[in-house]
Structure formats: structure tokens, C-alpha cells
Amino acid sequence: MRPDMSVVWILFVSSVIVLPAVALLALRWALRNGEFKHLQKTALSIFDEEEPVGRMTDRFPDEPQGSQAHEP
């Protein structure tokens, strides 16, 4: 094998093996940490009492900021 071709192998190994391996380790951690349980709760974790579900949090500055903020 020519020396430069070894670089292709390094790239191939790092891309196809090392990075997916890191991804799989992270996946294992996530599974053990219970990250895939109660998914609906996780989807709601970006909301809180200050910015709850049902409230739009952005409007053009020339529109009344309070109107239609809460929706059913």
C-alpha cells in the first residue's frame, strides 16, 4: 500500500468506525440513563410556568403582544 493510501484508511476508519462507535457509546449511555422513557414529558421540558404550553412567545413588535397569546 502506498503511504498516501494509508491516510484514506485512517479517514475510513475514523469516519466509518470511530465516529459511529462514539455515537453507539452515547446511545448506550442514553439507554442506561433512561433518556428514551417518558418521551412526551421530555417533549414538554422546554415549557415552564413562565412560558407554558398554549402561549405564543413571539410576535411582530407592531402587534399587541398579549392578544391571542393563549390558545385552547
Binding site: 418521551l39 412526551q40 413571539d58
Partner: peptide, 24 residues
């Protein structure tokens, strides 16, 4: 998008499939 609308993401489980398949 969910934050501005005030609604949770459509299918959270899909978002995880999307992330892990991108990573792989």
C-alpha cells in the same frame, strides 16, 4: 418552532430516530 407556537413537537420519538440516524 414548538416554543414560539406553544405546542410540543409532533412526535418526539421521531426526533430521536432522526438524530441517531444522522449520527451514524
Amino acid at each position: 418552532i414548538p416554543k414560539v407556537l406553544g405546542v410540543p413537537v409532533y412526535k418526539y420519538s421521531l426526533s430521536l430516530i432522526g438524530f441517531w440516524s444522522l449520527a451514524l
